[in-house]
Computed example of a mutant assay.
Amino acid sequence: MKGDWTHFLLVADSDVPLFRSLATSSRQVISERDLLPSWLFVCPDPFSFMRRKLWLSPFSIPLRGWHVQQLRRMALARHISEPTMLTLDSDVVLIRDFDPADLWQDGRLALYRQENAIDASARSDHLKWLSHSERVLGCAPAQLPATDYISSLLPWRTDTCLQMLDHIEARHGQHWVRTMIRTRAFSECIIYGRFVDDVLHGAGHYAMPHPLCHSLWLGDSYARDLAGLESFVADLAPNHVCLQIQSFLGHSIANIRAVTTMA
């Protein structure tokens, strides 16, 4: 990645010692304990023979790691001074030269939005995520087909994220995390996108219709072997600066490394 940027590694408190050696003048390791309220705490999951973790609180049913990952991203806005937040999932690999500064145009930051992408036949929890964003933000119900804002390399304005957290707290009269976790069906990407479009009416942003990341989300999209991954990489578009192969799909690390090298 080009430019002078600070890299923040957001990790579970128990993992901080494992990542501490990666800290440099431009890379910070941040514990989730410094980001999240004290009443949200982690414990081993007995139903996975203690291999996985659960996050517990008095205000929600148990949360999984991918829920807390979203909360970490949102919480980071209150801990940094950089104007741009660029979030990458841990299974994202940058494959092309890229300077995030190019995402700014005349004082406005790119907002990824895929119009008419969510309809009544949506395969995942998109409809639940839309409903949750409406309850959290107080915006009108989305008209289907609705806009999708989800990708694996997303730029956010830090000041906009701060406005969003303040908006949620002012509307509900409680810590924003408590409002978020009333259900486990939420998407931080949709909440940010709808805050920009439905609350701020697009202020400070311009629409970016093409994703920066080429993502393999579903197991039935390509064959689960090296040939399938090669086909996936062959579908890279000029706008893609990185790719993501979901870890739970079961592709071998060797095959992933092979195709990222060829990309």
Rank of each mutant, 00 (worst) to 15 (best):
Q105L: 14
Q244P: 00
F232W: 10
Y206C: 15
P238M: 01
A263D: 05
T6S: 08
Q143F: 05
A12W: 10
R194F: 07
L88C: 11
G228M: 03
D148G: 04
V259A: 08
E169Y: 11
T179C: 12
F47C: 01
A185R: 13
G250M: 04
Q174E: 15
A77H: 10
A122M: 06
D125M: 11
I150G: 00
R184Q: 15
M164A: 02
I181Y: 10
L154G: 11
A117H: 03
H126S: 11
T24K: 12
C189I: 09
L22R: 10
P211Q: 10
A263N: 03
D235K: 06
M74P: 06
E82P: 03
D45M: 12
R194W: 02
M164V: 04
L153K: 01
A223F: 00
P209Y: 11
H251Q: 02
M50E: 12
I191D: 03
P44K: 07
A258P: 14
L137Y: 04
D13E: 06
G193V: 05
D225L: 04
S48Y: 12
G219S: 06
Q69A: 11
H251R: 02
S231L: 02
W217V: 01
L86I: 13
W66T: 14
M208E: 15
L153W: 01
I253G: 02
W104C: 05
I181D: 10
A101L: 04
L243E: 03
I80K: 13
P211T: 14
R52W: 03
L76Q: 08
M1K: 03
L226I: 08
